[in-house]
């Protein structure tokens, strides 16, 4: 399916339209937010306390008297930055290794897959926390760590998808011609597992976003006073019954982004005819 017709198929389903709309809205917002937000994210109003929505502050103030709307608009930037690049890294190394394992078979495959299985057993949340606690939460550290841990699952998936292709004779034909492994991976297999990887990228992105927001909820994702949805929810949730807006606004923002990504993933899978084989590999 060409890029153009894929987009059309995506737009044909209502969930695809909504999902794509949400994702594009959030990405756009992340880019332009610093230009359009009405206040400084750290500026405290003279009230110095939580306040409901008003004409000046559409989403109210948080317990420190900061504008909630401003902080919500800005609160997804770090998360998007880290997860977008993290996903790219995860998919790139994971799919390459997976395709090589699937194509080479035999001992190469056995070694790669046993290592992958072992690494899957590592409780990565603890590792993430440990690494952040030791090296700090610079975006680069987060991108590399998340990119590494989330690529492990991609190896399995890419290998399974490659194995489905390798048995087909066009790969055997390329091998018999004497093509190099790299040529086979890039020219023969990649175009045929591209769809699977595309859907997987969307899924991985949403999972990574979940992990990032969980990290920042636990206080490890960003350093205050940088605004971030997870951290905003963590700080304001105790006062939720008194001041719901500082909790609800970031909740809506975060949920709408993740749901948007998942809707896109689902619509993509349907458009590419992959929705029934999804459950095969985690």
């Amino acid at each position: 399916m060409t890029r153009h017709s894929l987009l059309m198929a995506l737009l044909r389903s209502p969930s695809g339209r909504i999902g794509l709309g949400l994702v594009l809205f959030h990405c756009g917002l992340a880019l332009v937010a610093p230009l359009i937000v009405p206040y400084d994210f750290n500026a405290q109003s003279e009230v110095l306390d939580a306040m409901g929505p008003s004409l000046q502050h559409w989403a109210g103030l948080d317990t420190l008297g900061r504008d909630v709307l401003t902080r919500t608009f800005l609160g997804g930037r770090q998360a998007l930055l880290v997860t977008v690049f993290g996903t790219i890294i995860a998919i790139t190394w994971g799919s390459f290794l997976g395709m090589v394992a699937g194509l080479k078979g035999g001992r190469v495959d056995e070694w790669i897959m046993r290592t992958v299985d072992t690494f899957l057993a590592i409780p990565f949340m603890i590792f993430l926390l440990l690494i952040i606690a030791s090296f700090g939460n610079e975006p680069m550290v987060m991108i590399l760590t998340l990119g590494f841990f989330y690529g492990i699952g991609v190896v399995r998936l890419a290998r399974a998808a490659t194995l489905d292709e390798v048995v087909k004779d066009y790969v055997q034909s390329a091998r018999a011609r004497g093509e190099r492994t790299l040529t086979i991976v890039v020219k023969e297999i990649l175009p045929n597992v591209r769809d699977v990887l595309l859907v997987e990228s969307a899924m991985r992105w949403s999972w990574m976003l979940l992990a990032f927001s969980a990290l920042s909820f636990l206080g490890f994702g960003v350093t205050p006073p940088t605004p971030d949805w997870g951290l905003m929810i963590a700080n304001a949730r105790i006062y939720m019954s008194l001041a719901p807006w500082p909790v609800l606004a970031p909740m809506i923002a975060l949920s709408s982004l993740i749901i948007g990504i998942n809707l896109v993933a689902d619509a993509l899978a349907k458009a590419l005819g992959l929705d029934r084989t999804q459950a095969r590999v985690l």
Binding site: Y170, P191, N192
Partner: peptide, 8 residues
């Protein structure tokens, strides 16, 4: 069906 790469 299988010996020709469907994407070429």
């Amino acid at each position: 069906d299988a010996s020709l790469n469907p994407r070429q």
